[in-house]
Design a protein around this nucleic acid. Sequence first.
DNA 1: CGCTTTACCTGCTGGC
DNA 2: TGCCAGCAGGTAAAGC
Length: 279
Amino acid sequence: LPELPEVEIVRRGLVNLTPGLAIVKIELLRPDCVAGEAQEFINGLEQQTLHHWQRLGKYLLGKLDNGGWWVVHLRMTGQLLWLTTPQPVGKHTRARMFFTGGSELRFVDQRTFGRMWWVPPGQEVTQVVTGLRGMGPEPWDCSVQDLYQKCQHSQRPIKTALLDQTWIAGLGNIYADECLFLSGIDPSTPCHDLSRPQIETLHQAIIQVLETSIQAGGTTFAHFRHVQGMNGHYLNQAWVYGRAGQPCRVCGTEIQRRKIAGRSSHGCPRCQPKRPTKH
DNA sequence: CGCTTTACCTGCTGGC
DNA sequence: TGCCAGCAGGTAAAGC
């Protein structure tokens, strides 16, 4: 379940491997892994050379020498694997991109939610990749004041707001639950009811959790695979995510799970108490 | 407009 | 053993 740290680690892997190489051949085993017309994607990218890779939230953006873009979103289960020797094509292989020098970048995606886009030279990325419209700031570019202002104008549960990519880019269900635990905030708390100190604590927790995870190689929580195949740590570090019914690592109280806006949310009722509203 | 719910998709788990 | 409901979750679209 790649969130910002995992996507950033993939980006760093691609930066080390692909710039200066050309895509010589693309094979789509499952054409609907590409947005729009599959043949346009193939024609647009084949014979083009990679210049560099950027990341916006959970989107990976590969810039081509001709000014076009190759955009990838891994969604739930997507993986990009760099293969330097021939490997059997598994059941979940969606696309194969072959590069000069004989290496292959393989797009593997069990649940098929992952998508790739080709943006022609001269077009804005947001014209083609609609999900990038209104994308919020990176967590470290979002000030406490920004977050406070947004909370002042919203009655939504804070958990739901953290998943809203137009507020802050890059948080997913796992890191959102972890940040709220570290902040001592009940996930269902309406944004408007959060005090300024609570928002300051939350802001710090978001940045600290994401930076720590990037430093750990994106493997802190998520079941995740590096471009060169390293395995993640399968949630063995989580404070609350996926630990419903187990004792809180801080106070021993049973971790609870409930649905908030359709998403499972995990928390410790003692460490994340409901508080009286600030008004 | 603000917010919630549902659809998408596949593999895994648990109950019978 | 088989069958089926439920669940997982990022995002877009539909619903209220």
